[in-house]
Design a protein around this nucleic acid. Sequence first.
DNA 1: TAATTTCAGTAAACGGCGTAAGCTTACGCC
DNA 2: GGCGTAAGCTTACGCCGTTTACTGAAATTA
Lengths: 256, 256
Amino acid sequence: MPNEAVSTQVSGTEPAIQPLSRRERVREATLVEIKDIARRHLVEHGPGGVSLRAIARDMGMTAPGLYRYFSSLDDLLLSLSADFFTELSMAVRTANDALPERDVDGRLLSSLRAFRTWALANRAEFTLLFGPSHPHRSCQHESVAIEAGRHFAATFLTLFDELLQQHRVSLPPEDDISPELSRQLRAFAEHAGFTTENASDGALRVLVGCWVRLYGLVCMEVFQHMEFAMDTMEALFEAELSDILSSAGVEYRSPR
Amino acid sequence: MPNEAVSTQVSGTEPAIQPLSRRERVREATLVEIKDIARRHLVEHGPGGVSLRAIARDMGMTAPGLYRYFSSLDDLLLSLSADFFTELSMAVRTANDALPERDVDGRLLSSLRAFRTWALANRAEFTLLFGPSHPHRSCQHESVAIEAGRHFAATFLTLFDELLQQHRVSLPPEDDISPELSRQLRAFAEHAGFTTENASDGALRVLVGCWVRLYGLVCMEVFQHMEFAMDTMEALFEAELSDILSSAGVEYRSPR
DNA sequence: TAATTTCAGTAAACGGCGTAAGCTTACGCC
DNA sequence: GGCGTAAGCTTACGCCGTTTACTGAAATTA
């Protein structure tokens, strides 16, 4: 039994070393080729414009062959989603790491801008991640993508957590938060894996408020619902960014 | 030439009286039947789950026959979009008209809640209107839908205008608005047909800010990106609504 | 080395799709 | 009664996802 593989890997993170058999190496290569081509089609024709047959044709093979790699078209798109989430996470983290650690404000600004930048440079991919969810395949365990999504969320959550560590966030008055809202905020925190001591209801309220605003802003731009009037929404984004962050006690600085 | 039709109609708004020939009546009936069934499919299978063949099958006819009514599937969906925009406009207007005219705050609150309510009761329809735009058919003159969309926007714009008439909106400091942003805000106002004297840069800034937040909030709920943590986002919506409107000088009141 | 298992990829087929071209048939008008 | 218009049909083309049964080569075992 030479070239034993995958038997004692650490977890899903990294395959420890690389005792990949030849079979497994070529399989891995085919897998990434499929995903590369699928992404190209996604970018060129949007979600819904991705088809197994066209992908297979581009690779010089037949569609049923792809079923050795993905159990369905949906499965392929889910796998792509996972990739995109980690790519987006990396983009944000990179922007974050470009600034000195103690400059929390700068890192936050930079991270949020990186989110928008990635979204605009990868509209179709963003749509897949943050656009309308499929009607039938509900949010239920689409393991890969959901896990990557959680990981992406953590990127922002830790950043926000750092902000909380420093006193500065001005929290909304306690009685502004209804019991109902409080319950839902705590449920959110739990499911998102945000269980710090610092996470008071007020802090969660601010966090979610910021996220919703950022999300709306970027969606509007990516989905092009202002296209008829604005060529780019950069200026509006910066203005809103300033507002959003000031609600979290962060001092705005213009980019560059 | 009895039963003369459509010769002297006022415009696209209403066919004046109803000198519709029998032919035209039955055609009209078929047309609404197609759209009714299409909407059912849209609701049941989402956009992308609407197919001419399935619609035709449900009506007991064949797909090519539908081309007598719509020049393509896309054309049908566009026509549906237009209908949905006017339906949504009506829902908002109805909520607005339920309160006394001088209660601007109340009418605004009621209108924004009606927007969310309609969106949640008509997820698929909302997605068609406000979800990702098709990649290839850019926003270019999709006449019917674009016109209905403009009409919908006007619903909110007039409401906001009333708010401006009364001094109360506290405008952001002038120098908070970059020249770039100013230019884009004015472009937006012009394209949206919002040309009141009251529309200072500051006012436009507040208006667009409110709209973006409302949009993001409702998108997040309709697209179910918080589903994993929150069953309903009602509480969060009310909390954000309070924030949003306070930025426009409107006093929040809880519903009912 | 020979036998055997595993598995990537194929061909054929089923049912579904949007759409174009050409034909039939009935309604509405003179 | 005759005729034009247009609604709806048939047929056809080329896409699509997915299933089934198969081939043949590589990897494993003996």
